[in-house]
Amino acid sequence: MTTIADPKAPRAPRPGPGRRVTRGNVEMASWLFMRISGVVLVVLIFGHLFVNLVAGGGVKAIDFAFVAGKWASLGWQVWDLLMLWLAMIHGANGLRTIINDYAEKNATRLWLKVLLAASFVAVVVLGTLVIFTFDPCPAGAAAGTLPSFCPAP
């Protein structure tokens, strides 16, 4: 006597590969980050614009001494670092979403994301280096162009 292995009615397999299950909180975190960083960036960027372009001597006062003076204080270093990192992650994440939405081939999507990641790393590393290794009193510069706290040459 033979047993019937599967007495269920035959059913044609579902055509196509179907959806890959990609659950997890990554997309949720990315979605939340965009909202939160967006709000923070509004404050950071408008604060930056106001201090640089409106307050004090206005836009005409921007020169090497002004920037060097700002970056000599820890507060402005943190402000600019936050602005750099949040803006870069926010923007890169937005571009990642656009690539996911509009790239039709897997290879195109992969290469665009590699390009995006490379440019992200380059800008973030360079920007961070500039903020922290910036020398407000370079040797050999004319005294009139330096911030007031530099020692006289």
Partner: peptide, 14 residues
């Protein structure tokens, strides 16, 4: 909610 917390789930809504 777990099913829709997917890369292809509710987060793709623009």
């Amino acid at each position: 909610l777990e099913i829709l917390n997917d890369k292809e789930g509710a987060w793709r809504c623009r």
